[in-house]
């Protein structure tokens, strides 16, 4: 009994380490990320691709209201997995930070600098009494000094840089697919194809165009843009074709 009540104490206080040095609330927050549908990000020499599974729980729901990919600034996009409402708070922070950089220095914020300010914020919620950590992971992608960049944030406030990464449910399966199929000579269309294939990997068939949300930020215009359903349909057709050939 004694042991159990102690165990519970470690697990309730976010600011309390367990005797073996773990922060249970942060680990639970990572579990919350796994419960979310997956998002994928990858960089190619010509730009960054962000893709998210936007599944709806009822055919009556407007699919466009499921937002998992957000524009943070002209040159930066954010994909999320986990608690959508938590993600929105972080995206808003990122937007304010990006504009703050314009006010302070008259310049676009770097993708790494922006990611750091998000993770600094997340970290504070692992150390502040009475608060709860963010139950969301983000992929922050954009162009910095003409180069595509991709970072991940996790609920502990750590950031990682990636060539290609998956977050959310079935992450391991999708990440494995990316590891097998990613190469650094992809063009942007190839990147979109790979991202959609990767999101489809845990499923029985390739996801439908309207079930995914895809955005790119290319080095050409350094501008966030959503990929239209028409373009996605033709890319998915190609994937289907390739799978039939195999």
């Amino acid at each position: 009994m004694q042991g159990q009540s102690q165990q519970q104490a470690y697990d309730r206080g976010i600011t309390i380490f367990s005797p073996d040095g773990r922060l249970y609330q942060v680990e639970y927050a990572r579990e919350a990320v796994k419960r979310g549908t997956a998002s994928v990000g990858l960089r190619t020499p010509d730009g960054v691709v962000l893709a998210a599974n936007r599944r709806v729980s009822s055919p009556l729901m407007e699919r466009s209201s499921v937002e998992k990919i957000h524009k943070a600034d002209d040159h930066v996009g954010v994909a999320s997995a986990g608690h959508v409402a938590d993600a929105r708070q972080l995206v808003d922070l990122a937007r304010r930070r990006a504009q703050g950089e314009q006010l302070r220095y008259g310049q676009q914020i770097g993708v790494e600098t922006l990611t750091r300010s998000i993770t600094d914020h997340i970290q504070e919620y692992t150390q502040t009494g009475g608060a709860r950590p963010f139950g969301v992971a983000l992929l922050v992608g954009g162009i910095e000094d003409g180069e595509p960049k991709l970072f991940e944030t996790d609920p502990s406030g750590t950031d990682y840089e990636w060539q290609a990464a998956a977050i959310g449910g079935n992450r391991d399966v999708i990440q494995g697919y990316l590891e097998d199929n990613y190469h650094d000579e992809l063009d942007v269309d190839g990147g979109i194809e790979l991202a959609v294939s990767a999101l489809s990997e845990p499923e029985d068939e390739v996801v439908a165009a309207e079930e995914v949300d895809v955005a790119t930020i290319t080095t050409d215009d350094e501008t966030f843009s959503s990929v239209s359903v028409d373009r996605l349909e033709s890319i998915i057709e190609e994937i289907d074709q390739e799978e039939m050939d195999e």
């Binding site: 006010l103 302070r104 220095y105 008259g106 310049q107 770097g110 790494e112 600098t113 750091r116």
Partner: peptide, 18 residues
């Protein structure tokens, strides 16, 4: 120190103006 690269002169001028 934070970013691992120096401020460029345009940024420095904007900051000084602010």
């Amino acid at each position: 120190a934070r970013r691992g690269e120096g401020m460029n002169i345009e940024a420095l001028a904007t900051l000084a103006g602010n």
